[in-house]
């Protein structure tokens, strides 16, 4: 029996480059892109105006 745990949501936006630079995280030695969020989605969810 197979149970799907997670599958990526379809993205309407890709490659916009709005995401944070990977090395601005905690580690400074083990940068992991997969730990990051899609910043555009994050920001738009927060309805942040700049």
């Amino acid at each position: 029996m197979i149970r799907t745990i997670a599958k990526p949501q379809e993205k309407k936006i890709t490659g916009c480059g709005e995401c944070r630079s990977t090395c601005q995280s905690a580690c400074k030695t083990s940068c992991t892109v997969g730990n990051q969020s899609c910043e555009r989605v994050t920001r738009e969810e927060k309805i942040e105006k700049i």
Binding site: G15, C19, S25, C27, S37, C38
Partner: peptide, 20 residues
């Protein structure tokens, strides 16, 4: 930090293949 993973809403493929 290293136990974070977002398989549903993480970075787009463009970001994932772009290196750091």
């Amino acid at each position: 930090f290293h136990f974070h993973i977002d398989l549903e809403g993480g970075p787009c493929l463009q970001k994932r293949v772009s290196a750091c």
